[in-house]
Design a protein around this nucleic acid. Structure first.
Lengths: 110, 110
DNA sequence: AACAATTATCGTAATATTGCAATTAAGTAA
DNA sequence: TTACTTAATTGCAATATTACGATAATTGTT
């Protein structure tokens, strides 16, 4: 199939999966780390830094933008990308709630 | 292609992506939530609870087990699955470090 | 206008993922 | 042994993802 049956799951479960999926490729992880690290965040800089072809980087940026985790600001012929800190914080709350499920559990059940 | 060029990225970036990828499907999110929630965690219970076919659940369990996030204990003809709390904690440290990159950043850069 | 620089989009090939029917494997019970 | 229960594996079809060459779109420059 290759198609997740999203209608079987809760909105929260689907939201967690969507955020996780976008982090599920090392190029997007690298892009985000780079955006956090540097001030100048032009698309071309990311292409040079990461080493994938320009259309590939552009495609990854599109996915990150679609989820609202980054913003793109046109500056002349370049586009300055950066983290959307407000949405990043919201995403963190969702992911932390999921990852912190173990706070009460002390032992493995089997 | 469909093939991530993992050799271009750091071990940490690939590790983050691997963990994230396994959370990138709502069925696996649901399985993990169920394992945290209930004590009896037989494979059959998960099949009934989640509503996907048994081979599909079994396949998702295999991926979670491969990453060390769950353990499977054979009990007669059943298999009792549960969270591997030690590895879950280690995974959390990796993911938290990635997600918490914004703690110093106050404003969007553009 | 013509050209250059930068990024987005399109099209396509290769690979990965998802889901399940059918089957197999492994244990239990009669 | 035979029958039953439960879970893993196999095989396959449908869809998704990744990567990039070619091209288009946009803006700036001369």
């Amino acid at each position: 199939m290759g198609l997740a049956k999203t209608e079987m799951f809760t909105d929260m479960q689907n939201e967690i999966a969507l955020f996780a999926k976008v982090f599920g490729h090392p190029a997007r992880v690298a892009i985000l780390q780079q955006l956090f690290r540097i001030d100048s965040c032009y698309c071309g800089d990311l292409v040079n830094e990461i080493g994938l072809a320009q259309p590939t980087i552009s495609q990854h940026l599109k996915e990150l933008k679609y989820l609202g985790l980054i913003k793109g600001n046109v500056e002349g012929t370049s586009v300055c990308y950066c983290i959307n800190t407000e949405n990043w914080t919201k995403m963190k709350q969702v992911m932390f709630q999921f990852l912190d499920q173990d706070i009460r559990q002390e032992e493995d059940c089997c």
